Simulated scan of single mutants.
Amino acid sequence: MSESDVEKPETRTVNPFLKMALELGPIAAFFIGYVRLKDTMFTIGGTEYEGFIVVTAAFIPILLACTAILWMLTGKLSKMQIVTAVLVVLFGGLSVWFNDERFFKMKPTMIYLLFGGVLGFGLLRGESYLRVVMEEALPMQEEGWMILTRRLCAFFLGLAVLNEVIWRTMSTDAWVNFKTFGLTAAVFLFFMTQSKLFQTYALEEDEGAE
């Protein structure tokens, strides 16, 4: 059987603004909900819940719905999106079940430790697992992938430590701002600062087609 006989998965394009709305919408909804309800107490089933817990409970189905819509529109989900959804359900669910906001605050730590750990494991084996998931979107030489993977591994582990420091030593308001704006900005700035690396190790068009 030749490669041409193998049916390739359908590639669907989606409006980039819609895609961004589906990816960032749940985070924005969480922030807005928290700002509006943070000082409100809710009594549900005889148990009092702070606004943070109620907003967390609402965030879970919103994220899952947006993830499902994104999957239906594009026909695929990245491993990062799948892992994030699972950890949101797990740690968000624990926060709601035990009425304890600390579980949800630990979620970014677990996400970044997991991603950093996976990349680090690949580096120990002399491989770039990052290349496996990003090679089509970002063709680079092998050396470039190894450098980017080492940097991203350290970056993820640094974010995990930073999240722990912030939620354990600062107010919930500070943590929500960090989660909503700080983490998003940090990831954006990280990739912006890698532009020279991308240019240095970029594959030529004819080389990438071989």
Rank of each mutant, 00 (worst) to 15 (best):
R12V: 00
G182P: 06
C66S: 15
G75F: 05
M170G: 01
I32A: 13
G25A: 04
F115T: 01
L138R: 08
T43S: 12
F59E: 03
E135R: 06
W175E: 00
E127T: 13
N163W: 07
E136P: 03
F188E: 01
I27H: 02
L63F: 04
L124P: 08
I60C: 08
A28H: 03
F30R: 01
V176R: 00
T13S: 13
T40M: 11
W97K: 14
W175N: 01
W167Y: 15
K107R: 15
A65C: 09
D206F: 07
T13C: 05
I62Y: 07
K76C: 06
G51M: 03
W175C: 00
M106W: 06
E143H: 14
I82M: 12
V96R: 02
T56A: 01
D100Y: 00
V35I: 15
V161W: 07
F156A: 13
S171Q: 06
P61F: 05
E210R: 14
N99V: 00
F156R: 05
K79E: 05
Q199V: 11
G208P: 02
G25V: 10
L37C: 10
G208W: 09
V165S: 13
E10T: 05
M72A: 14
L119K: 14
M140H: 14
A174M: 09
L123G: 10
T200A: 14
T169Y: 02
A28R: 01
A137F: 01
K19F: 02
L183M: 15
V6E: 14
T149I: 03
A174S: 11
E204M: 07
I44A: 12
T172S: 08
W97H: 13
E164P: 06
Q199W: 07
D173S: 04
W145C: 12
A160I: 12
T200P: 10
G208R: 12
V35A: 13
A21I: 02
F121H: 04
A185F: 14
A65Q: 12
L148I: 02
M41G: 13
L148T: 04
P61L: 13
I111Q: 01
R12S: 00
E164R: 13
A209P: 10
L124W: 11
T47D: 08
M20D: 11
S2V: 04
A202C: 08
M146K: 13
L64E: 15
A65R: 13
